[in-house]
Design a binder for these strands. Structure first.
Lengths: 202, 202
DNA sequence: GTCTATAGCTGGATAGAC
DNA sequence: GTCTATCCAGCTATAGAC
């Protein structure tokens, strides 16, 4: 039993470091927060960070490794409904909920920055994005076949644009303002068939 | 005349530093590019950067001070047409054109990051954003009165969402892919009055 | 396992030569 | 005005005490 306790304890400390680091990275940025600051915020000493993680980068990566299972679960849960538009909106709503976190813009910006510098992080992020992309694209494709969604839309590109709009919402996140109503309006209308079509799809 | 030449020369060097710095900041980030690297890329020596600019931050700020007059001019040029929707799309098109620059995501991300750290930069960015916001809001307001735009839309919030979608497009900019057709589709439909309205406006 | 101390390095900003 | 040389601060990562 002693071993289990130790493992739990170790896992708890790793978590504490990750949580503290996430806040600091979002507020000050990756390069501007030192390992010592993370350790202090987590209630540990500077050297301990490097006992639990090989690198400062590894701390950053660990924060986002949690998102992959969450994304998979979300896509699985809403992938099977019989109203593709409603399913897409449900996934968007769930993702946009995190927008209310005041740290959202800082974290997003830092991810984009670090993805260009850390190939291993890029891999982690790419997988999560791919899961979401495939989930959206499958729903769009289904909608175009049932006639609920404009058949002129390319499922892949449309899925990408749903993610683009979500990115914009995250970047401009404001805890005092719920973006979901406007997101729903934009996406509903993006998907709908309509007589007076302006702009092309390609 | 000698003085004029010197002034021109000095202005040219300032520009050279700004140009070189913009590329490096976008590619590697603000904190990861040293003053020495900027100087080298601009064909000058390390100390010179601090002759032309008080700070490394000042170099960064200078890059974005150029955008304010550009934004004013853009808004002024399209503010007076008799088709508000077309004017909005024209402004969006003009802004989105810069999306084709491979440095766009890097620059955007770096601005967001640094705005939180440098109040003077925040001021510069806020002014440019405000000019654009007011331009869009005035056009939306006019459109709601003429009936070209859904009167249920709040001009301020709608303007903000046009900027949010643009941010998303910038963040996901890809030199091989023109975002303008899809941007036009999204914004046209966001603005249009429509019978089968889902989501609320507030 | 976790802390303290520190080695080793990098980079912003300056001082003084030219 | 511009360059070279350099000072000093601050950071990552490690080594070794406990």
């Amino acid at each position: 039993m002693a071993r289990t306790v130790d493992h739990e304890r170790a896992a708890a400390r790793r978590e504490a470091i990750m949580r503290a680091a996430a806040v600091l990275f979002a507020e000050r940025g990756f390069e501007s927060t030192s390992a010592a600051e993370i350790a202090k915020a987590a209630g540990l000493s500077s050297g301990s960070v490097f006992y639990y993680f090989t690198d400062k980068r590894a701390v950053f990566r660990a924060i986002f490794e949690q998102d992959l299972p969450t994304a998979r679960e979300l896509v699985a849960r809403h992938g099977a409904g019989d109203d593709p538009v409603a399913s897409i909106l449900a996934v968007v709503d769930a993702l946009a909920a995190e927008t209310m976190d005041p740290l959202a813009p800082g974290i997003l910006v830092e991810v984009v920055r670090q993805v260009g510098k850390d190939p291993e992080l890029a891999q982690v992020i790419a997988e999560t994005e791919a899961v979401l992309h495939e989930g959206f694209a499958a729903l769009v494709e289904r909608g175009t076949r049932t006639g609920a969604i404009d058949p002129d839309l390319d499922p892949g590109e449309t899925a990408r644009w749903i993610q683009i709009v979500l990115d914009g919402a995250f970047l401009n996140a404001d805890p005092d303002h719920d973006p979901r109503p406007m997101l729903r309006r934009m996406i509903t209308r993006l998907l709908s068939r309509q007589r007076d079509d302006a702009g092309d799809t390609a």
